[in-house]
């Protein structure tokens, strides 16, 4: 059954592709790792981008909001450098690194606004 347009899904429902996450990984390495670390573990006051603190920060927000945050404020020394498609790939990588599985459809502007971030797989 195709999803009704506008229906909210969970990020656990396969909302990005592995290829996107790979692209995001490269972008992360070039733009984000110098502060957040190659393993996303943060450093002192620089927040980790994986784990329960990060997921609690974004719980019940949409992936679009996280993309917007990356696009408008990161990297801190050059905000706006990552285009929305690039920020989307970075977010796909972050989802992957937080144990959320890839699927068959790409994360896009539209699907991201309908993808709710859940710290844990719903119903698990």
């Amino acid at each position: 059954m195709p999803q009704a347009q506008g229906a909210m899904r969970s990020v656990w429902d396969g909302v990005y592709t592995s290829a996107q996450a790979d692209k995001g990984k490269a972008l992360f390495g070039d733009n984000c790792a110098k502060c957040h670390g190659g393993t996303l573990d943060g450093n002192d006051e620089i927040p980790a981008l994986k784990g329960s603190h990060f997921m609690a920060d974004w719980e019940s927000q949409t992936a679009a909001e996280l993309i917007n945050r990356v696009h408008t404020t990161m990297p801190m020394d050059d905000p706006g450098k990552l285009s929305t498609p690039s920020a989307t790939s970075v977010v796909a990588y972050l989802l992957q690194q937080n144990g959320i599985p890839a699927g068959n459809s790409e994360l896009t502007d539209l699907t991201a606004s309908q993808a709710r971030i859940d710290a844990q797989k719903p119903g698990s």
């Binding site: 110098k34 190659g38 002192d44 006051e45």
Partner: peptide
């Protein structure tokens, strides 16, 4: 682990440009 500089809270986040971090 590769050496990293802890930017410190908010460093590089001012409104002003150009964004330069000499340390980086």
């Amino acid at each position: 682990q590769p050496f990293r500089i802890n930017g410190g809270p908010g460093f590089g986040s001012s409104s002003d440009a150009p964004k330069v971090s000499d340390d980086d």
